[in-house]
């Protein structure tokens, strides 16, 4: 099967500081990858490069056959196919949950309003917050907001979903409701790249684990191998601290 995402020798600098070093990564359709590593290791930057919220300076990134370039039309096309969920939810506070979900389908994919609303309700049901549809983001709990954000991304019917520490800003008891939705999504066959520290979730859904440190991919392995016998010392140290 051909790769849906391909990163080749990607390098990125913030001014003089190199945040990504020689990143090579291949993701197959329906593959689930969990990225972990200490803070500042470049995990978020890596997935933000995949839909070009960050610009990389060297190497090539191919998403679903499109090479990421400076061409804005091309970037918008890729972004419409790649859903993203953020640590801080980033719902649009001036719109109701339903409008949050229908806005992009209506304006970017040009769906008729009625169809967009049906799609939105379908996805809100999927994340189990149908009853919150007419409320505004400020009226929802953190867990509900994050689930709404997932529904919003799903409404664009993306082929790939990126999760940037989706549970790090949540109260402990809300983490589970978000993870449940993500597990459900993974079982549905979505291609997912997840940056998270939730190792239980990683063991349950991930096909492959990636460990990053100081801008490099230190280790990439099948999930079982990664937890049972990590190869590099750095990974062992990290795992001993986090588990």
């Amino acid at each position: 099967m051909s790769n849906i995402i391909e990163l080749k020798n990607v390098n990125k600098w913030f001014d003089k500081f190199q945040v990504l070093k020689e990143i090579n990564l291949e993701v197959k359709p329906k593959e689930k990858i969990v990225v972990c590593g200490p803070s500042g290791s470049g995990k978020s930057t890596l997935i933000r490069c995949i839909n070009r919220l960050e610009e990389h300076q060297e190497g090539s990134i191919i998403v679903d056959g499109n090479v990421i370039s400076t061409d804005t039309k091309n970037i918008e096309k890729i972004r419409a196919e790649v859903g993203m969920v953020f640590q801080q939810f980033n719902l649009f506070p001036h719109l109701s949950i339903l409008d949050n979900c229908t806005l992009a389908p209506i304006w970017v994919k040009k769906l008729p309003k009625k169809q967009a609303e049906e799609l939105a309700m379908e996805n809100l049901t999927r994340v189990q917050i149908t009853d919150q549809a007419i409320k505004f983001p400020g009226q929802l709990s953190g867990g509900q907001q994050q689930r709404a954000a997932i529904a919003r991304a799903l409404c664009m019917e993306p082929k790939i979903m990126l999760f940037d520490e989706p549970t790090s800003a949540l109260d402990p008891e809300m983490i589970k409701e978000v993870l449940d939705v993500m597990v459900d999504l993974a079982k549905g066959g979505m291609t997912m790249i997840v940056v998270t520290h939730e190792m239980g979730f990683a063991k349950e859904v991930a096909d492959n684990m990636i460990f990053m440190d100081e801008g490099r991919i230190v280790e990439k392995a099948k999930t079982n191998d990664f937890f049972e016998n990590p190869k590099s010392e750095r990974t062992k140290l990290f795992l001993s601290q986090i588990l």
């Binding site: 918008e76 972004r79 196919e81 980033n90 649009f92 970017v108 954000a149 991304a153």
Partner: peptide, 27 residues
């Protein structure tokens, strides 16, 4: 406005004008 609003609008595939007139300006 927090940068996250720009990120979210962009990640949904909105271009400059749609992002500004649907998301950024109203807020």
């Amino acid at each position: 406005l927090p940068r996250g609003q720009y990120d979210a609008a962009k990640s949904l595939g909105m271009g400059y004008w749609r992002m500004h007139f649907l998301i950024i300006m109203p807020q």
